[in-house]
Simulated assay, not measured.
Amino acid sequence: MNDTTAAPLEATQQDAVYAHLRQWVTVGRFLPGERLKIRNVAAELGVGLMPVRAALQRLAAEGALVNVPNAGVAVPRLSVAEFDDLLQIRMLLEGEAAERGAGRLQPEQVQALQALCDRMAQSLQQGRRDDYLAANEDFHVILYRAAGSPTLWGLIDTLWLKAGPISNQLFDTPASAPVLNDAHEDVMKALKRGDTAGVRRAVEKDIFVAGQFLRARLRAA
């Protein structure tokens, strides 16, 4: 294989590995403070060390990970003040995206949201946290991207990178599971009423309620 063919293939693999790891960070696959070992990540993805190293450094440049001297990269820990700031900005931006998106959803998208809402309820009942987090991400992606604003979506996506690692700790508090899907059900009720402002309030409630559980975990730590 000549160099002109190898270079695009290598770049494509690096992009694929980056996208995969970025999604893992966003849904809370890695926990705050966790060190990511290149060899272990490469083995799990079934790829070589170089694309993983490049992807991890790219995520560190975005602030999703931090470089640790002589120890590779790790997931950053948020202070309470940093978390509070992140929570307020998320409520502001995601509330705006939700209200805009609610007015532009197609019927098939509303059906997809209902299916995801039902899936989240079932995942919570069965204690399947990874499936809940994956369905939760899909739910919000559909709603926010319907707003039709790449700029707004890009800002939200960046914030998710910072919020993702701590989101897994939602399930460390038993009291959270019974209420985590309430706001999603409120979103569906508001959509059926054609109440876009109600969708915004429901999304803000979703972020706020989850945030209180996570904030309590941060303070305890």
Score class of each variant (00 low, 15 high):
D3I: 02
D3K: 03
D3F: 02
E10M: 01
T12P: 00
A16H: 10
V17E: 01
Y18E: 09
H20D: 12
H20I: 01
L21W: 07
W24G: 09
V25S: 06
V27M: 07
F30T: 10
K37E: 14
R39F: 04
E44W: 08
V47N: 00
M50A: 15
M50E: 14
P51G: 01
V52I: 09
V52N: 08
V52F: 07
L56W: 01
Q57E: 13
A60V: 04
G72R: 05
V75F: 05
P76L: 06
P76K: 03
S79R: 13
S79Y: 11
A81S: 14
E82Q: 13
L87C: 08
R90W: 10
R90D: 04
L93Y: 08
L93G: 02
E94H: 10
E94M: 13
G95R: 03
E96W: 10
E96P: 01
A98R: 03
A98K: 05
R104C: 09
R104S: 10
L105Y: 08
L105M: 02
L105V: 06
P107G: 07
P107I: 05
Q109K: 07
Q109F: 00
A112E: 12
L113R: 02
C117W: 09
Q122M: 10
Q122R: 13
S123Y: 04
Q126A: 11
R129E: 13
Y132E: 04
L133Y: 01
N136C: 04
E137W: 03
V141D: 14
R145C: 12
S149V: 04
L152D: 03
W153C: 06
W153E: 07
T158N: 07
I166C: 01
S167N: 07
P174S: 12
A175E: 15
A175Y: 10
A177W: 05
A177C: 05
V179W: 03
H184W: 05
E185I: 12
D186G: 15
M188T: 11
A190H: 07
K192N: 12
K192Q: 14
G194R: 05
R200I: 11
R200C: 13
A202R: 10
E204I: 13
V209L: 15
F213P: 05
F213N: 06
L214P: 06
R215E: 10
A216S: 14
R217L: 13
R217A: 13
A220E: 13
A220Y: 08
